[in-house]
Amino acid sequence: MTATLEVRNLRTHFFTRAGVVKAVDDVSFSVERGQVLGLVGESGSGKSVTGFSIIGLIDPPGRLAGGSILYQGRDLAKLDERDMRHLRGNRIAMIFQDPMMTLNPVLRIDTQMIEAVQAHIKTSKAEARTRARDALGMVGIPSPEERLNSYPHQFSGGMRQRVAIAIALLHNPDLLIADEPTTALDVTIQAQILAEVQKLATDHGTALLWITHDLSVIAGLADRIAVMYAGRVVETGEAADVLDRPAHPYTHGLIGSVPSRNKRGDRLAQIPGMTPSLLSLPAGCAFRGRCAHASTACEQEPPVAEPTAGHAVRCFHPIQGAPA
């Protein structure tokens, strides 16, 4: 069986005046039907750009510079805009980070939902409206019929994100890309949304690509995890393997800097330095400037090692054993 999504050697580069920004550079991963892949990384690591590359919404000066994005065996990178549009919002959907910004402020919710229904199915307005209403009910919005007539500003952030999720799930997509959809929300709302999206994904067998910088969110959600740093995947594996036995020093540092893992009173572990500018990446391992284990070998491109089956790491000095 082919994976719902298989990304191979994806490169998305931005050709700016200051130079070529390699936002995504040689990224590969795959997501199976009904599976959740957590794409983890700091801001600027290229995780959102990866999401937008898959759904084909990279705007100039950015463009796909190589690799393939196989959706059920079809290469999306080679698809023309028309065919891509038929998939977008229909088979492949996306939810965004900031719910305050994802809905058009001057259009009513029903307008924004009905157009999403009618973009892919030929139905009457009344039928599309019924469908929109049911979708709102499904994501737990009370009295959906009346809420359809509201404008986005009449909703709270959490409710707006539910509306966005309802829109994304209108056509029961095969692949849902969630770009940090809970970052802007309260912790309680965050938990509700997480649970709901997970349930909807398992119910419909939707493959889920969950992009986040928050390891605590991903720990309870993902089946597999891919850690990105400076446009590259530095470590991938089963969620349990990556979280309990991180092999890459960067992943190790990330996990170490989650507050709940530290003892009260201890200094919070942190990764020294900052993410390097994507304009002037050093040759070899991009993390070596901040890495305690770095050696002269790291000035070369690190090889991909597999400490255990299905757990890959791009490092000369993978760490053995659990984090301290």
Binding site: L57, R88, D98, T102
Partner: peptide, 17 residues
Amino acid sequence: PMDYIKFARAKGLSPAR
């Protein structure tokens, strides 16, 4: 460049719409 325009495109709407 607003998110809601990107979201509208992500819904699969035609460029004209």
